[in-house]
């Protein structure tokens, strides 16, 4: 069931649906928060804060059209508030941890042979066209997509096309061992 369907059922008094609804919201908010907020504790605070508001308002108001839109707005406003206080979303990339100790434990182990193959392919692709790297460089320096396009003198669509080609080449390289 979608969030809106769960909401409709929950509003009819279905406690299981209500439980499911808040679980679905929690999962989504955590996922979204992680994309925007680097610090996991801060991210969780924002998520919980939004859920508290939704839980409180849930009994008070009756959303007729789009509950998911309303719930999202509640959450997004909190993310926005956080970002404003702590700096823009760019800060996430600028504050990319430099020390090993700052990194969290990996969730899954990557296969070593894939790493080697990837780096080999990467070398080939970067040699073939440095623009791929430049786009990503700018990106990780915190430039917005518009700024990257401006710097590279390409349109937004072209920017994505370049990245798309890079990805296709990587796929090809991994399959054939070369980009030719």
């Amino acid at each position: 069931m979608t969030i809106d369907e769960l909401y409709t059922e929950a509003k009819k008094g279905d406690l299981k649906a209500r439980d499911e609804l808040f679980k679905a919201l929690l999962a989504r908010f955590r996922y979204f928060a992680h994309q925007k907020i680097w610090d996991p504790d801060d991210a969780e605070d924002v998520v919980q804060d939004a859920l508290i508001v939704i839980n409180r308002e849930y009994d008070r108001i009756d959303i007729k059209v789009s509950f998911h839109l309303w719930a999202y707005k509640v959450f997004d406003m909190r993310v926005l508030g956080y970002v404003q206080k702590k700096g823009t979303s760019r800060a996430r990339y600028l504050r990319y941890p430099e020390n090993e100790s700052d990194f969290q434990e990996p969730l899954v182990k990557i296969q070593p042979e894939i790493k080697v193959k990837l780096l080999d392919c990467l070398n080939r692709i970067l040699k073939a066209n440095s623009r791929y790297a430049r786009i990503l460089n700018f990106q990780y320096q915190g430039f917005s997509t518009e700024e990257i396009c401006e710097k590279l003198k390409v349109t937004r669509n072209n920017c994505y096309s370049i990245l798309s080609r890079a990805r296709s080449l990587l796929a090809l390289c991994l399959k054939k061992g070369d980009i030719k």
Partner: peptide, 24 residues
């Protein structure tokens, strides 16, 4: 300016790879 920033770029491209075969 490029080399100092390579690590994240490579990571980004690898992420790209792992999310391959998608229309863009």
């Amino acid at each position: 300016r490029w080399p100092a920033l390579v690590p994240v770029s490579i990571a980004a491209i690898i992420i790209f790879f792992l999310l391959i075969f998608k229309d863009w």
